[in-house]
């Protein structure tokens, strides 16, 4: 429906121009801001490319743990606080796995480097 290249591809191309062509000519005092802009573009591009199925799967796993209701994440958070998924409860391992899947899906957009090894390793 939309014309190609799509939004994600445009962001990636624009980010390349920013980092390779514009940044070297910016005074030192403006480079931090330019890097922030590049970072924001990268996050937005990854979000546009994220596999919608992955998110839906994560949410379905959470909903399976919390039972029927229209706000599974909120119910999940509340139940965790109340100890409903503590070690020794029947659903503890399933809850842990759902949380890990969710965090990994979120990192796919916000911090993909954290997925490969330990978070916080990349000093950009």
């Amino acid at each position: 429906m939309h014309e190609q290249p799509d939004g994600a591809a445009l962001l990636e191309a624009a980010r390349g121009v920013l980092l390779e062509e514009l940044l070297p000519h910016l005074p030192e005092g403006l480079r931090f801001a330019a890097r922030m802009v590049a970072n924001a573009m990268a996050i937005a591009a990854r979000e546009a490319r994220q596999d919608g199925d992955q998110q839906a799967k994560c949410l379905a796993a959470v909903a399976a743990l919390t039972g029927p209701g229209d706000a599974p994440l909120a119910a999940f958070a509340k139940a965790i606080r109340a100890g409903g998924f503590d070690p020794g409860t029947p659903q503890h391992a399933a809850a842990a796995a759902a949380l890990m899947d969710l965090a990994r899906a979120r990192c796919t957009v916000s911090a993909p480097k954290a997925l490969a090894e330990s978070p916080f390793r990349a000093a950009e």
Binding site: V109, A114, L115, F120
Partner: peptide
């Protein structure tokens, strides 16, 4: 957007595989 990375580390620190 630092939050997801912190969440991942929080889970790892609490022993989630």
């Amino acid at each position: 957007h630092i939050v997801p990375e912190l969440e991942l580390e929080i889970l790892r620190m609490t022993g989630v595989p």
